[in-house]
Design a protein around this nucleic acid. Structure first.
Lengths: 212, 212
DNA sequence: CCATTTGATTTTGAATCGATACTAATTCCT
DNA sequence: AGGAATTAGTATCGATTCAAAATCAAATGG
């Protein structure tokens, strides 16, 4: 029996007391949890979806089991299993790196890209897409602040994009990554990189100013 | 090996293209996931923490296995197991309802309340607490909009507080719930209720106006 | 050249969660 | 009132998933 009701409002009018932050936090994890689950027969598990998304968004040297493990804050063994399950389904294929013969980089197949079109996160994405640009930017700013501060507290690794990285040096058409010591393809610029290093201190005023 | 880096910024400067909503959604689930995990020896599992929080926040007739099941979008059997595990640890105690001898309402023990003080969500809560009130209110507004819209798409049940419910009728010192047909204790007003029904249409301008 | 570190994988075990079935209490219907 | 149908809760079983530990291969460093 599913009670179909509509508006969720975790109390916002009367009490502005100290439990409001707790409500916000609970609501955040609730939404995060709800967004990943799927009512109509799930094709993949939550971990598999997350892995598929990660492999789609990370650059060449980051699409590895190890990097996914640290991204998910799990063990390499578990990461390896998840990736292998995706490989068995024909959603990703691995190729060994020439630079380091141990490491394997996984790419999405056409089948994998097609599967990503049915990502259960699609619902949440479309709702976010419906927000106004101002509201969306504000939301992203606050959310990324929460993410970075929380990651700092927990000593969690952080993945950012090459174009925001300290090692990033644009050079004409392509760009150079001082960390990997190699040229970056244009397609990799907006992708996640494990060796990402922020350009500024997170707690500085940088987060507060650049949208005004 | 944990890479301790600090600022997470899922690309916000250059590309304002259509993949930004996707990044926001991913970041949201990422934060939700990170907030629940615990680095230093976890005492409870994520599901148990969620259950403990739920039982702490829900009103008398809502602190039941069935209600928690629909809150978590899981089966009653699983909900029953989770609650029972908490009961074994002495964190909650159940009492049968007089009104309906089948239903059991679970309350937190002192031990349970003490445990809640170590909720891994505490880190996220403290970060949210550090936000300015304006930013926090805006964030909550957007987040609850996302939650309600998503719940509507997915036909998920929604839990709201008595004081925001359509059945709510304040009467002097106490209040009356037209749905349960009984008086509400003051302590229950800000609590979650399974029979919550919104007073207004979610898509109306109500969400946009009352904070200006 | 050998020790150490790192990347990936396999195996094993524990634990969680869901499906199913069952009991007890309530409600509805004739 | 009596009986069917529904609902709350629980128990059992099985599949699945994830983490811990061990292993192998490649790279790094002294």
């Amino acid at each position: 029996m599913i009670v179909k009701v509509v508006l969720l409002r975790y109390q916002m009018r009367m009490t502005d007391g100290p439990q409001t932050p707790a409500r916000i936090a609970e609501l955040l994890v609730h939404v995060g949890r709800a967004a990943r689950s799927e009512d109509t027969g799930s094709e993949l598990t939550a971990a598999q979806w997350t892995c598929l998304r990660f492999l789609a968004r990370a650059n060449g040297s980051t699409r590895t089991p190890s990097c996914f493990a640290s991204f998910q804050a799990t063990t390499r063994g578990t990461a390896s299993q998840i990736i292998k399950s995706l490989e068995r389904m024909g959603l990703v294929t691995g190729t060994r790196s020439d630079r380091d013969r141990r490491s394997v980089s996984f790419d999405l197949t056409d089948h994998g890209r097609a599967m990503l079109m049915q990502d259960p996160l699609r619902d949440l994405i479309s709702v976010i897409d419906g927000l106004g640009t101002v509201e969306r930017d504000r939301f992203l700013k606050t959310l990324s602040h929460l993410a970075s501060t929380l990651a700092m507290h927990r000593d969690l690794p952080v993945f950012g994009t090459c174009q925001d990285c300290m090692h990033f040096a644009p050079s004409g058409d392509t760009a150079y990554c001082a960390c990997m010591a190699e040229e970056l393809a244009a397609v990799d610029l907006p992708k996640l990189c494990a060796s990402y290093t922020p350009t500024r201190d997170p707690m500085s005023q940088g987060d507060q100013n650049d949208a005004d």
